[in-house]
């Protein structure tokens, strides 16, 4: 089933999204922003799943289901991460990632 849009368009978009997420995760100091970056990376991966499923194995549904699964896990992960961030805030009075460096040598 060819929609006319070449696969590379989707892949480039997903790659840009993924590395935007990586960049955000490594550079931003705010834990909430880092969490958003993680979501960005997950969604980039979701796009890849869907695109590969659509273009390579059009008759099958594994990619679709897997992306749904990732969305569910991402929702759960967001809940856990926010709970963690709240607790970090209570302990450090800040959600700056550079201040949470107790676990070092």
């Amino acid at each position: 089933m060819n929609t006319g849009i070449p696969i590379e368009y989707f892949l480039v978009t997903a790659t840009l999204m993924f590395f935007a997420g990586v960049y955000g995760f490594v550079t931003r100091k705010n834990l909430i922003t880092m969490l958003m970056s993680v979501e960005l990376m997950l969604n980039a991966v979701n796009i890849n799943f869907l695109v590969f499923n659509r273009y390579l194995f059009p008759g099958q549904l594994e990619g679709h289901f897997f992306s749904l699964f990732v969305i569910a896990v991402a929702a759960a992960e967001a809940a856990v991460a926010i709970a963690l961030i709240i607790n970090i805030y209570r302990n450090f009075q800040s959600i700056d990632v550079e201040k949470t460096d107790e676990m070092k040598f």
């Binding site: 995760f25 490594v26 949470t100 676990m103 070092k104 040598f105």
Partner: peptide
């Protein structure tokens, strides 16, 4: 080499990626 264990999550992530 103990300096690598800095406690900075982003540093670890950077090295990992």
């Amino acid at each position: 080499i103990k300096g690598f264990q800095s406690g900075q999550v982003q540093q670890y992530a950077f090295v990992f990626v």
